[in-house]
């Protein structure tokens, strides 16, 4: 059951987000250089970190999909990358707002940190069209997984390359010789990082649960009303979760992905958690 623990996770996310915003506005000290505007840091940086970590996690899930050929890993990889893309957009927009306030420009093209983050976004923006272009679900899962593994490996390499490059205007905050953040700022940052991570995981859980319920209702409709009552899924970027996916490699029917008699007799099957 993917919906299990959803209420507790929602409440924990709500508490963490409320605590973050309260701490940012009322408790975190103003930066000596940037003043109040630096508080964007508590949204922008945790969102960016969660995004990059999520891309790597998506790559790990995709690797598991390739190794086991188990469709549940494809679903997880797809949903994690899907939500990470939304977080990536938030990171880009909050970064642009901060850049405008601090540097007077919405975007600075000669800054490696910004441009590399944009490159990562553009790379993953091709993930959905790639999936959509492949109609066969098995091939779709395999090709998308290969993409996710390669792109997921690119993310930390890209991060390290940018870190080693000499920055022009973008500050380095963590693990620097200058000492990094003061204690109060670091505390608020960590609370914000936890809140953003919880928010990310909550959205992932919501989406996987929704997909699981949708699949189960389709299977139930087929059993009750017959094949004619179920509209074909058609071409989709999202993975279609089929019971056949639970079978080991080589034992799955190649053609009838969702309409096999075997699938009908077995009925809905959840993605194992």
């Amino acid at each position: 059951m993917y919906g299990k623990g959803l209420r507790a996770l929602t409440l924990a996310t709500l508490v963490a987000l409320t605590a973050t915003f309260a701490l940012v506005v009322f408790w975190a000290p103003n930066d000596a250089d940037q003043g109040f505007i630096q508080k964007i840091f508590y949204v922008h940086v945790p969102v960016a970190i969660v995004t990059l970590v999520a891309y790597v996690v998506g790559g790990i899930f995709a690797f598991k999909q390739l190794r086991t050929d188990d469709r549940k890993w494809d679903v997880r990889s797809y949903v994690v990358i899907h939500i990470a893309l939304i977080f990536n957009v938030v990171g880009l927009l909050t970064g642009a707002i901060w850049a405008k306030a601090s540097w007077g420009h919405w975007w600075v093209w000669d800054e490696p940190t910004l441009v590399s983050f944009l490159i990562v976004f553009l790379l993953y923006a091709t993930y959905q069209p790639l999936r959509f272009s492949i109609e066969d679900p098995e091939r779709q899962a395999r090709y998308a997984s290969v993409f996710a593994v390669i792109a997921g490996a690119f993310v930390p390499l890209n991060f390290m390359a940018v870190r080693m490059a000499s920055s022009l205007v973008h500050p380095r905050t963590f693990a620097t010789a200058e000492g990094g953040l003061p204690g109060e700022m670091m505390f608020v940052f960590l609370v914000s990082l936890v809140a953003m991570s919880l928010l990310f995981w909550l959205l992932v859980k919501y989406e996987i649960t929704q997909k699981n319920v949708t699949w189960q209702i389709r299977a139930l409709r087929r059993r009750l009303l017959g094949d004619d009552a179920v509209a074909p899924i058609g071409r989709s970027a999202a993975p279609t979760i089929a019971p056949e996916a639970a079978k080991p490699l080589g034992q799955r029917p190649r053609v009838s992905y969702e309409n096999s008699p075997e699938a009908r007799s077995r009925g809905p099957e959840e993605i194992a958690t």
Binding site: D33, Q34, G35, I37, K39, L93, T94, I97, A101
Partner: peptide
């Protein structure tokens, strides 16, 4: 006082930018 000594952006303007970032999220 620290903010008044070295403000990068006037306080009321900075507040709008910070609010905008949170609103985006």
């Amino acid at each position: 006082a620290l903010l008044a000594a070295a403000p990068a952006v006037p306080y009321e303007k900075a507040g709008r930018f910070v609010a905008a970032a949170f609103i985006v999220l």
